[in-house]
């Protein structure tokens, strides 16, 4: 009911506007204004489609180039140098020997 009412309401406003523009403006006949040439027709109807594809291809290419390092996928071999976040042992002062820490805690996980 509500949808019918809104359509009816829109039609009440839209129909007079369309009628007025149609009677005021020149719609033209088969010969006036001049029909489009073949080149213009191809340019408009073909060019729009080709242009749309070109824009899509350009956007895709731009976004994939800016994508940064390739995404890690599970099961892939890891062929990067080690990455440290935080202070790495080499940055700390003093010589330290790597040894087992008795009483150390923690947990492991696999995926």
């Amino acid at each position: 009911m509500r949808r019918v009412l809104s359509v009816a309401g829109l039609a009440v406003f839209a129909l007079p506007v369309f009628a007025a523009t149609a009677s005021a403006g020149e719609i033209g006949s088969k010969y006036n204004p001049d029909p489009l040439s073949a080149l213009q027709t191809w340019g408009i109807y073909g060019g729009t489609i080709v242009g749309g594809f070109l824009v899509a291809i350009l956007i895709t290419a731009a976004s994939s180039r800016r994508g940064g390092p390739p995404r890690y996928r599970p099961g892939q071999p890891w062929e990067h140098d080690e990455v440290w976040v935080g202070t790495r042992p080499e940055e700390l002062e003093g010589e330290r020997s790597a040894k087992a820490v008795p009483g150390a805690g923690g947990a492991s996980g696999n995926w």
Partner: peptide, 29 residues
């Protein structure tokens, strides 16, 4: 202090992690 290391580990992975941990602080105990 937190540290993250992303990279391959050789040998016993848990022991390798513990050995890295021991180099991060003056006195691991």
């Amino acid at each position: 202090p937190f540290t993250v290391r992303v990279g391959a580990l050789r040998g016993d992975v848990r022991l390798a992690a513990e050995r890295i941990l021991s180099t991060l602080v003056d006195n691991p105990d």
